[in-house]
């Protein structure tokens, strides 16, 4: 969908300081660009749930992090996500790879449950389906920050 350079440009424009992530095969193509970007620190986690609370600590410390994970990692992160959004009340940003969304005939259960899970957590999100929507990412996250609410982007992917 997007190149690493495009994502770095978006993240830089947003003033993001830390990318807390566990990549899949789509997001992973951004690694060289993210790792070499000036002003961006890449924080690699072992399990996606870790990413939310690391981002919470960064936010409390005055930084502007974003969590970047796949939808399967979203499923794994439920308790951490619940805590940072609803107990701590932090308007954290995240970009979530929507596994198999671009495969019309896919029977991948990860495709089936991604949006219902976000809705179950009462979280609004922006669905990115086409490359032309690149500029929508920054607009959505900035609007969420202005409203002091969670900023979540669900980005369509093919394979995981």
């Amino acid at each position: 969908m997007f190149t690493g350079a495009q994502i770095v440009e978006v993240f830089t424009k947003l003033g993001i300081t830390h990318v807390v992530w566990l990549p899949d095969s789509t997001l992973g193509t951004w690694e060289p660009a993210l790792a070499s970007a000036d002003g961006l620190q890449l924080v690699r986690v072992c399990r996606e749930g870790e990413a939310w609370t690391i981002a919470a600590g960064l936010h409390l410390g005055g930084k502007r992090p974003i969590v970047v994970i796949q939808s399967t990692g979203l499923f794994e992160s439920g308790d951490a996500l619940r805590n940072v959004y609803y107990d701590l009340g932090l308007p954290l940003w995240s970009l979530i790879g929507y596994r198999s969304y671009l495969l019309p005939d896919s029977r991948d259960s990860a495709k089936r449950f991604a949006e219902p899970i976000l809705k179950a957590w009462a979280l609004d999100y922006l669905l990115i389906e086409r490359p032309e929507q690149l500029s929508d990412i920054a607009a959505h996250l900035e609007a969420c920050a202005a409203a002091n609410k969670p900023g979540i982007v669900l980005m369509a992917e093919g394979k995981g």
Binding site: H18, Q41, V43, T53, I54, A55, A56, G57, L58, H59, L60, G61, G62, K63, P65
Partner: peptide, 8 residues
Amino acid sequence: LALGLALA
């Protein structure tokens, strides 16, 4: 959470 604070 503490790690995030330490990095920040």
